[in-house]
Design a binder for these strands. Sequence first.
DNA 1: TTAAACTTTCAATATATTTTGAAAGTTTAA
DNA 2: TTAAACTTTCAAAATATATTGAAAGTTTAA
Lengths: 168, 168
Amino acid sequence: MELPEAKQKFIEAWGKLGSEWGVNRTMAQVHALLLISPDALTTEDIMESLSISRGNANMTLRELMSWGLVEKQLKAGERKEYFFADKDTWNIARQVAKERRKRELDPIIKILDELTKVEGDKKDPAYQTFNKSVTDINKLAKNVDKTLETMLKADENWFWGSILKIFK
Amino acid sequence: MELPEAKQKFIEAWGKLGSEWGVNRTMAQVHALLLISPDALTTEDIMESLSISRGNANMTLRELMSWGLVEKQLKAGERKEYFFADKDTWNIARQVAKERRKRELDPIIKILDELTKVEGDKKDPAYQTFNKSVTDINKLAKNVDKTLETMLKADENWFWGSILKIFK
DNA sequence: TTAAACTTTCAATATATTTTGAAAGTTTAA
DNA sequence: TTAAACTTTCAAAATATATTGAAAGTTTAA
């Protein structure tokens, strides 16, 4: 396989993976494109490479910046804005974990905490089942939360070293 | 908060979480409903509880069964099919991890393995960047894969015990 | 100033996903 | 058999999500 074809495949695969994980396809593709570009790209470059409109490119880039995955780069003596992606995979994973925790895990834990407190007739099977499921899910969510918390603070080698050591 | 309201909230929250994680909202809601039901429910019960059509209920239940999250229950002397959800949170997490690994992680690892092998001019920055990103992402994906593999084999207490011990 | 170079916005449009519900299919009891 | 009880299918409709592109907004150099 030659490089241009390989690039295409990578962008396609990353886009597909994104859309299976709640990230819009174009956003994942722009990210992929920037990940394999040695230099920062302009909005025009991205529009052309991926055949998308200016509006779409602009929105997507802002979204990627809000996720902390892409940054603007200003070049001296140039009006145009250039964009580049953080290439450090561990940073990317951490950044994504951080954002999703904030956006999704935190809110559900808040709701589960409330629901855990709901009182009811301890003899009522409906109440028992509700309470057990909610409590169990809450525990799981908190374990995940703790693990993420540690991951966010950790260094990559240490993290995988520790995890994989357990699983030797 | 009273039980009926709490149930509603739980179904709503689970549905929202699902849709943020690539599971369709209705599927997550049916799952939530079954999780908090002490008894197995019929298609009719589910249609009524969630105000959805027969076709939708049927498709969703089959999908949940294909994920291994819900099972059919046949009651002696009855024609109707009853459905109930596995209430063990650890089983649910494992089941979901197992399916997503098979459906999403495995295919991308296969592609990354191929892309890692692409040859090119080692002096070319475009090739260097491509190769580094692909290789790094491949490593990360394989670490995740190994961790999931172990999680799938593990017992809940052992798993969280080991993880949380490291992160004490 | 001002006009060229660039970025942002957003209503309209296109695309993708989900849901409906009636018809077709299947199973069972008598 | 057969007809009632139940499940499945799937084309059409509804809904949700993503994209376009032209107009409006902003910044800069002269």
